[in-house]
Simulated scan of single mutants.
Amino acid sequence: MKTTVRLIAASTMLALLSGCAGDGMNKTATYGGLGALAGAVAGAAISHDNRGKGALIGAALAGTAAAGYGYYADKQEAELRRQLEGSGVGIQRQGDAIKLIMPGNVTFKSSSSDIASNFYNPLNQVAASLKQYDQSAITIIGHTDSTGSRQRNMDLSQLRAQSVSNYLIAQGVAGTRVSTAGAGPDQPIASNSTEAGRQDNRRVEINLQPMNRG
């Protein structure tokens, strides 16, 4: 048993180190290593007759499952970065989640919730990816700067989020996957005391998360 646990621990550490090597972007190895370690513990606990064998089986099953989602998310992120290069859309990876940040000055006309015609193509690319990678829940959140009344900004942010949602659904994205919210000026990412900061705060974010993780 001790030998088996040492072997799994060493293998897990190697996977983690491999995932962190180079540019640090190989999340699949990291998820797989952590999943294997957790599976090994569970497998050893379940298989009382042969804890070593149980640990190895648990490691294999859990490691494969965890690496499977990491691989899925890695592929989706890479495709989105390729498709949206030069579009003005920012992409952030936060653990299991992928966030698309769409600047308001690119996506909408001033004080309007009508999508700018030059932004249809990037949204088409997003829609195509969301249809291909259909295991993610989609939350669309509108944000504004602090200029004007709070209620006006809350309403505008909700309308913009809904406009993006309506467009994606019209392109074939399942509406059951999509939810919207308007945050108004309440979640700034820059100072509202400068024009550059206010421009950064005027945005729509599309948050992608695995359906089974809330």
Rank of each mutant, 00 (worst) to 15 (best):
E195W: 10
Q83W: 06
L84I: 05
T28W: 05
N207R: 13
I140D: 03
R82V: 11
G32T: 07
A59W: 08
S113N: 14
A45H: 12
A45Q: 15
L208D: 04
I101D: 01
Q209T: 13
G24C: 03
I141G: 03
D96L: 13
V178H: 00
Y72S: 06
G88A: 02
D114T: 15
A55V: 06
A15I: 01
I169R: 13
S117D: 08
V126E: 07
G197L: 07
R82H: 14
A9R: 06
V173K: 02
K2T: 14
S165V: 04
Q132M: 09
I91C: 08
F119Q: 11
I98F: 05
K2H: 15
I141Q: 03
S112N: 07
K75Y: 11
T64Y: 11
M154I: 13
Q187N: 14
L34I: 15
A40C: 13
A44V: 04
T64R: 04
A44T: 10
G19H: 02
G182D: 01
V204S: 02
A161D: 03
G22H: 14
N50G: 03
L168H: 01
A60R: 02
A196Y: 13
S47H: 11
P188N: 05
V173S: 04
V5E: 07
N207C: 08
A73W: 02
Q94L: 14
D186K: 00
I140L: 00
A29T: 02
A183L: 13
A170D: 11
A59P: 07
I57M: 08
A183Y: 10
D134G: 15
G104M: 06
S191E: 06
G90Y: 12
I189K: 09
L56R: 12
L37D: 08
V41N: 05
Q151G: 04
S11D: 03
L34S: 12
P188S: 07
H143Y: 10
A38S: 07
K53W: 08
A67W: 01
S179H: 01
R82T: 14
N212V: 15
L156H: 09
V41S: 12
I101N: 11
A78F: 08
C20P: 04
T12V: 11
T144P: 11
G148P: 03
R81C: 09
S163F: 00
A45W: 10
M102N: 08
A29E: 04
L100F: 12
T28N: 08
Q135D: 07
F108Q: 10
I98M: 06
P122W: 03
G148N: 04
